[in-house]
Nucleic acid binder design. Sequence first.
DNA 1: ATTGTTTATCGTAAATATACGATAAATATA
DNA 2: TATATTTATCGTATATTTACGATAAACAAT
Lengths: 105, 105
Amino acid sequence: MASTKKDEFTTEEIWLSEIAKALSHPARIKILKILNEMDSCMVGSIVDKLPLAQSTVSQHLKELKRVGLIEGEIDGPKICYCLNNKTLSKAKTALDKLFTKIGCC
Amino acid sequence: MASTKKDEFTTEEIWLSEIAKALSHPARIKILKILNEMDSCMVGSIVDKLPLAQSTVSQHLKELKRVGLIEGEIDGPKICYCLNNKTLSKAKTALDKLFTKIGCC
DNA sequence: ATTGTTTATCGTAAATATACGATAAATATA
DNA sequence: TATATTTATCGTATATTTACGATAAACAAT
């Protein structure tokens, strides 16, 4: 069974592992880059830039949204996704802190 | 099917996603901290500090070793694991670059 | 040589992740 | 109202992950 036993770890360790999990697929890393580069951020435009089906991209967006790295705003029948700089900043700091803590120069 | 289609992404995106995957479990984050804090780095000592079976910890060590974040050196019947600062440094830089690129302050 | 210690690997089970097509839901447009 | 557009969700299949106990392999010690 995959009973993760996550109760035994700190909130910070669990949160950071969730962020890392969200970044653990190249499509999701690319989505973050696309959202930053594009003026428009409709799902359709993202799908066009990825070698994946629309439903699959939607799943990846859901995962990024789950951990708060992106946000979606309804705009008519479309949905406009954008980066959540607050969470991104928090993630950057936390990862930096981890690497510094474990002696990485 | 889970045919990841990773061919369509850049080497950097794939590599970074692999690093993130290695960090995507709290036990593996904790292992990195443990390896930094302990003088000794035998598997047994790591197992003692985690709420997981020895075989499970061995799997997590294998995953960290796979992406080069740690290294194992044979010491008699024991194996001494340690952090690989070169890879850690590379990962830190790459993650920092990603967050900076996507506009994170 | 036998025994104990240490760690990886095997076998297995359950959960999660990844992918797709099909469909539903919501809105815009004709 | 009917149709088109957009995106999430459903259903499904396969692969991977996570976990454990049991065992094997490698070495040390008696």
